[in-house]
Design a protein around this nucleic acid. Structure first.
Lengths: 225, 225
DNA sequence: AATAAAACATGACAAATATCATATTTAAAT
DNA sequence: ATTTAAATATGATATTTGTCATGTTTTATT
């Protein structure tokens, strides 16, 4: 099993602020897991006893609404941590995590993380900064949900995925999402998401083959109202 | 001017985790301010060089959307802190803070707070916990905005205000909001908010005299779909 | 007290979105 | 390779919500 001290993934998250000694200690008690596409990593309401460090793959964080729809709140990719919030507030998870493709993750037990949060102020300040950033993003999503149309939210989602998660050599978005996933990000009916994407295609803003989507006119997408 | 060590307000927020020495130090550099109803405490995009501790009154945190509407993201009442997020991520404020009634606040300079965040791990863990809680609330709001109807969101807002901020001896909600404020919380047109509130009144769920709103049927409001 | 300005209220209509029905295509399973 | 199931697509229609117009009430100002 890999050693945390030597793992390059940590430089992308707050674990980079741990000392070598702390990393060695964490390395000795962490466990590696492979998670298959579609598998649930943890459920809404589940008590987490640790955090996951995503070494490879992508997952969605979603919450089931009373109307039976799953609202996707955030996506977590390679390099990021999963489950910190629940761990810190010592509550059961508010969201469900589901793998969007095959994943490699390391699980670090709660007790170890808490120990470091209490002793290493650089680490805890780093976690704090990440949380502050997440909160800002969440506030922005609230405003978008409340004030923008489905068309606009979907256009912005495409731009966001393009800018944040990058794309394949052929220019297609690196993340494969079903139309239903898009609907659940934007907060609309699947049919509506399909309709809007079809329209974007007709308008030459995107092209698509199956789930593979390519942005053809980024500036145009940004102008969608 | 009051002394932080003796101030009872701090027990409601993370400042309670500061040592007596830290509180004395902060007390010596804080400034008290009175803010009139309707006054802006800080604007969107403004760089904050400190946090506010709310001694009395209530304010709204909002963000201007491109369509010209002000989305209210959160309300901050007596006992809570204001501006921590921007301070921690070292960015300009993402939201505007506006007093909903006359307020008493203490302003604590950034340098003092940062010093304590770095040296007092109990304090920083406490701030972290509060932030984690805010993030959870924000995620819930996202789901509600995306999946529920205006009627339902407004009913839940009334219940939330009732449960969180309490009510006056006569049973009316302790926070006075205009119909426009309600619309800006729920993310709808002012006319729609007015219509829905009128309907709630007809249905006997609430009663109202001007801005004074009284919940007449809490269980009924919770059942609104 | 008179006037002006907000805030509140409501109708009529338009736009956005959801829902239901039903093909068609694509992927999965035997 | 065939069958089955799931995902995508699109039309028709209903519901929700927004916008504009206009009137009334409340609050603020002189």
């Amino acid at each position: 099993m890999g050693k945390c001290e030597q793992c390059i993934i940590k430089q992308f998250n707050s674990l980079k602020s741990l000392t070598k000694e702390e990393l060695v200690r964490i390395s000795s008690c962490k466990t590696s897991k492979t998670i298959k596409k579609g598998e649930v990593i943890f459920e809404e309401g589940e008590m987490l006893n640790g955090v996951y460090c995503v070494k490879d793959g992508i997952c969605k964080l979603s919450k089931l609404s009373e109307n039976g729809k799953d609202q996707i709140v955030k996506m977590v990719v390679k390099g990021q941590l999963l489950g910190q919030r629940s761990l810190i507030s010592d509550e059961s998870s508010n969201l469900q995590a589901t793998a969007l493709n095959d994943m490699e993750v390391c699980f670090i037990p709660k007790s170890e993380i808490i120990k470091d949060l209490q002793n290493n102020s650089k680490f805890s300040f780093d976690v704090l900064k990440e949380m502050a950033h997440d909160l800002k993003e969440a506030d922005d999503v609230i405003v978008n949900m409340a004030q923008k149309h489905v068309r606009q939210r979907l256009a912005e989602t495409l731009v966001y995925i393009h800018d944040t998660f990058g794309n394949n050599p052929d220019g297609t978005l690196s993340i494969l999402l079903s139309r239903e996933d898009f609907a659940n990000i934007v907060g609309t009916a699947t049919e509506s998401a399909i309709r809007v994407l079809s329209q974007f295609k007709k308008d030459g803003l995107i092209s698509s083959v199956g789930k593979q989507i390519k942005i053809e006119n980024l500036a145009g997408l940004k102008r969608v109202e």
